[in-house]
């Protein structure tokens, strides 16, 4: 059996990490739960964690984002409590993507409504011959 850790990143106006943590405790599943500022980390057997998070996602399908994490919660080589503070490696990408999550959430809502976005037309580069013509036209005749 493989033990994995998954991160639940919450970007919701109606759900707090503590709500998710309580739901996880209520399930009485054999997992380790750690509440963090951005969400919750769950560690346990792959089958148990996957099926548990499938239910947790239903709490707010557009506000919960899940990814796997290599290190277990509180890993001494990663946890900043044992590394004299500072952000842990991997936080920077999470911080960067966290800014996009509201946009992704609204895009998922639009997708479920059946909206098809208008694809942008890619602007073509200026043709070299046309560019030469423009230069010729703009030349000042002495």
């Amino acid at each position: 059996m493989e033990t994995i850790t998954k991160m639940i990143v919450i970007n919701s106006s109606k759900l707090l990490p503590s709500d998710v943590a309580i739901k996880l405790y209520e399930s009485k599943a054999d997992v380790m739960v750690k509440e963090t500022c951005f969400g919750v980390m769950v560690s346990g057997e792959r089958e148990i964690v996957d099926s548990l998070l499938l239910d947790i996602r239903k709490l707010d399908p557009y506000g919960i984002f899940i990814k796997e994490r290599g290190f277990a919660p509180g890993e001494p080589y990663r946890c900043r409590a044992t590394r004299r503070g500072g952000s842990r490696p991997g936080f920077h990408n999470l911080e960067n993507e966290d800014k996009l999550l509201p946009h992704i959430a609204s895009a998922l809502k639009a997708l479920d409504r059946g909206e098809i976005p208008i694809l942008k037309k890619q602007t073509k580069k200026l043709d070299i011959d046309k560019f030469k013509e423009i230069i010729k036209e703009s030349e000042v005749i002495k």
């Binding site: 990814k67 796997e68 999470l94």
Partner: peptide, 24 residues
């Protein structure tokens, strides 16, 4: 290690291949 891509691939019913699995 993208959160958005991992989540979207899993959400749409496929298996994402991410570096975290190998590090784990």
């Amino acid at each position: 290690n993208s959160l958005i891509l991992y989540d979207l691939v899993e959400r749409f019913g496929h298996e994402p291949l991410a570096i975290m699995q190998e590090i784990g």
